[in-house]
Design a protein around this nucleic acid. Structure first.
Length: 516
RNA sequence: GAUUCCGUAGCUCAGCUGGUAGAGCAAUACACUUUUAAUGUAUGGGUCUCGGGUUCGAAUCCCGACGGGAUCACCA
């Protein structure tokens, strides 16, 4: 351990001895009572300023006995006065530490040793004092008492800022993601993104709860990875001596609960897919799924657009969002178009009247990478994602998919060969996928068998058959509408982030080879 | 998985057609009782990711490995 310390790490460890000589524990056990946050103080002083224009502010009512704690972000020692900026859970605030205030008697050791030499950027301190405004107009705390709460032994990157311009940003993506704790401390805005994510999830949860939904938990370890087409992670249970999979979706379990008599269930499901990683894909990601009995996919469109409108409004106070170079309006209702019409609009080909080989020829003519293992459904999917998807910037429901690409979806009430399904596209990306759920057990069994044929044809993403799920359907499932919404992708939109790594605290990375 | 770019001090980066390393911040020391990317003076800090090769000589050129970014493929 700790064999290759750099000069700064050595210097900080030496300071531990300095604390010991003064009888100061740099890692005290006792709690530090906090009675104000930096944000509270800054806001209170702004209010006071507004009420007392032109006045020099030496004290502010209610902020004469502040006790606050935070991490030191900069130290500016000016002889017998030291300015320290600390950062608490809310924001940064300046401390005004003078030798006369913290070492009022003859003995100036505390100021000269602790304040001037033993403190470092990164240390946690607690201070008491009063709020005031300095000559240069910065709200500060005149410190009476200063206590070291935790000594930092490793130098933080120092990011400076002037007039909104960032200097020496801690910018290397690898370092930022591997050491997110550092990223969160030094890069302004990172914490805000994650707070917004939390707010988004809370808004959704409240909306669902207010509409009578029940939040549930279903298995992550599954013996049959169902509900989606994807390569699963496999693992092994020793006591049962059996192979298990990490879930790729929770769909089939939520439907079992609908069978069991819950009418409206939802789960924020952490799913795992053993596939490529990119700025839009992480091996584990979160999908919100919910299922509502006695509803259909049209009801679900109405419900979903209302929910997303509320999310946008709660997070931004408006439905008009800037996402990258685009302006996106989440005002309901969203545009609706069938997948066949979308393909016709962007390719000029009407595939609704074509059979598999004709669609194959269209794909070939458009230079898409297709092969003979692909069924009609996959070919249409290929056409749509290659030629149409990117065009749907404004929230749009794509509806009425061909039955071949939707093995869990109820057949369309009036259109032959189609199913009652929609995908929600925003900013050229799929955000949600919803159906009138297939509840005919015989039809479901046949659809699964179709999937087996696709698998035999070489489609390695075709679905497994879940016989217990079929058994559940045979007992009877009410007509049900269900949806899955990609929470990470939605969060990227709502926080205007271009990569999934920016909305996951700890995105997957190749393991680091740290030995000390 | 493919293509491509990158890896130099704690952080951000410079280092040209090969001649054994620089800056700013951070650190250390001193000065300064209202600073604002504080300032001034001085000092220390590097297995140039790793391993081979070419060469009298490699941070620099070549090969390989490791790690990362971007684009593509798969997918949400």
């Amino acid at each position: 351990m700790s064999e290759h310390l750099n000069d700064q790490e050595i210097a900080r460890r030496e300071k531990l001895k300095g604390f010991a000589e003064l009888g100061i524990d740099p890692y005290p056990a006792a709690m530090w009572e906090v009675n104000a946050t930096a944000k509270d103080i800054l806001e209170a002083v702004e209010k006071y300023k507004a009420a007392h224009p032109g006045e020099e502010i030496h004290e502010v009512d209610g902020y004469k006995n502040i006790s606050i704690a935070g991490r030191i972000m900069s130290i500016n020692a000016k002889g017998k006065v030291t300015f320290i900026k600390i950062q608490d859970n809310t924001t940064r605030i300046q401390l005004f530490v003078s030798i006369d205030n913290v070492s009022p008697g003859e003995d100036k050791t505390f100021y000269n040793s602790v304040v001037k030499h033993l403190l470092d950027i990164g240390d946690f301190i607690g201070v008491t004092g009063e709020a005031f405004v300095t000559k240069t107009g910065e709200t500060s705390i005149r410190v009476r008492e200063l206590k070291v709460l935790s000594k930092s032994l490793r130098p933080l990157p120092v990011v400076k800022e002037k007039d909104g311009e960032i200097f020496d940003a801690f910018a290397d993506p690898e370092l930022r993601w591997r050491q997110r704790y550092v990223d969160l401390v030094v890069n302004s805005g990172v914490k805000e993104t994650f707070l917004k994510r939390t707010q988004m999830v809370r808004t959704i949860r409240d909306f669902l709860n207010d509409n009578g939904a029940i939040e549930v938990d279903t298995p992550v370890l599954q013996s049959i990875p169902g509900g989606a087409a994807a390569r699963p992670f496999t693992t092994h249970h020793n006591a049962l001596d059996t192979q298990l999979y990490l879930r790729i979706a929770n769909e089939l379990y939520l439907k079992r609960l609908i069978v069991g008599g819950f009418d409206f269930v939802y789960e924020f499901s952490r799913n795992f897919r053993n596939e490529g990683m990119s700025r839009k894909h992480n091996p584990e990601f979160t999908i919100l799924e919910f299922y509502v009995a006695y509803k259909d996919y049209i009801w679900m469109m109405n419900f979903t657009e209302r929910m997303l409108e509320k999310v946008a409004t709660d997070m931004h106070g408006t439905t008009d969002l800037h996402v990258g170079d685009n302006k996106i309006n989440f005002k309901a209702p969203f545009k609706r178009i069938t997948i066949y019409d979308a393909i016709k609009e962007y390719t000029g080909h009407d595939v609704s009247v074509m059979d598999e080989s004709q669609i194959y020829d269209v794909c070939k003519a458009l230079h898409l990478e297709v092969d003979k293992t692909m069924g009609k459904g996959k070919l249409i999917d290929e056409l749509f994602s290659a030629k149409c998807e990117k065009n749907f910037i404004q929230p749009t429901f794509i509806t009425d998919y061909p039955v071949e690409m939707s093995p869990l979806t109820k057949k369309h009430r009036s259109k032959e060969g189609l199913v009652e399904r929609f995908e929600l596209m925003v900013n050229g990306q799929e955000i949600g996928n919803a159906y009138s759920e297939l509840n005919d057990p015989i039809d479901q069994r046949e659809r699964f068998e179709e999937q087996v044929k696709l698998m035999e044809r070489g489609d390695d993403e075709a679905m497994f058959i879940d016989y217990d799920f079929l058994r559940a359907l045979e007992y009877g499932m009410p007509p049900t509408a269900g949806i899955g919404i990609g929470i990470d992708r939605l969060c990227m939109l709502m926080t205007n982030q271009a990569t999934i790594q920016e909305v996951l605290f700890f995105p997957q990375m190749r393991p680091e080879n740290l030995t000390s």
